[in-house]
């Protein structure tokens, strides 16, 4: 039985000036699975994530989402894809400081041209679900790191994306808050059947995944056991 992968990276190579970030890296993500991308810092994990999400164009190689070549899309189409099908959680600096938490969560919906009222209603539901309903009227600068990160997770999930890209989502948090964020993130992803690409260097965080891929010196060397069911 072969399941058509949701997201495929094929032989990606990417250099920033003299430094090679990715070298023929390949990866497959199935719908609904949680994949940890592991490796030491500077190994190219984040670049791989950026390439997968269509944020950065690889020098060579191909990224296919649902069979479509992302590199061949226009910038507008890629933006629309990121808005509609993907969600993002970063380590920090991802919430717009002057918007309230509620408005931050509603932002992707509004970017998708949903009305303010409807967007904020759905945002409020997600804040509730991520146990941060009490901060909805506050600005990101006024909430704790853990709360902020849960708001960010809510923002990533609010559009009901097919893939969530999480780049060191617990990097700035203590263990307890990190655990809480990971639990809420993976639970919500599994419930909504969203795939998660989780970049982390922490094994404890990676333990929330279904399987792991290791990036070392720009190469994917992990156990490519594609087909592991969620």
């Amino acid at each position: 039985m072969t399941v058509e992968p949701l997201l495929v990276a094929d032989q990606l190579t990417k250099s920033f000036g003299p430094t090679t970030a990715l070298e023929r890296a390949s990866l497959q993500i199935l719908a609904g699975e949680v994949v940890a991308v592991m490796g030491p810092s500077g190994s190219g994990k984040s670049t791989l994530l950026h390439c997968l999400a269509g944020i950065v164009a690889p020098d060579s190689g191909q990224v296919r989402y649902q069979g479509r070549d992302i590199g061949a899309m226009s910038d507008t189409a890629r933006s629309a894809l990121r808005r509609g099908e993907f969600g993002f959680v970063f380590q920090f600096g991802q919430l717009v400081p002057e918007l309230t938490c509620l408005e931050n969560v509603a932002l992707p919906l509004r970017l998708n041209r949903l009305g303010r009222r409807a967007a904020e209603r759905r945002a409020a539901e997600w804040l509730e679900r991520l146990e941060v309903a009490e901060v909805s009227g506050k600005r990101p600068g006024e909430v704790s790191g853990g709360q902020g990160q849960r708001v960010a997770v809510a923002r990533a999930l609010v559009t009901a994306p097919k893939v969530i890209f999480a780049d060191e989502p617990t990097g700035a948090l203590d263990s307890l808050n990190g655990e809480r964020v990971m639990r809420l993130l993976t639970d919500a992803a599994r419930q909504t059947h969203a795939a998660v690409v989780l970049v982390t260097h922490e094994a404890r965080v990676a333990a929330y995944s279904d399987r792991e891929v290791v990036v070392r010196d720009g190469r994917t060397t992990g156990m490519e056991r594609s087909g592991v069911a969620a």
Binding site: M38, A203, R204, A206, A207, Y208, S209, E212, V214, M223
Partner: peptide, 11 residues
């Protein structure tokens, strides 16, 4: 690592 992670996932 694979083995460790397997156990860690279980835990």
């Amino acid at each position: 690592r694979a083995e460790h992670l397997r156990v860690m996932r279980e835990l």
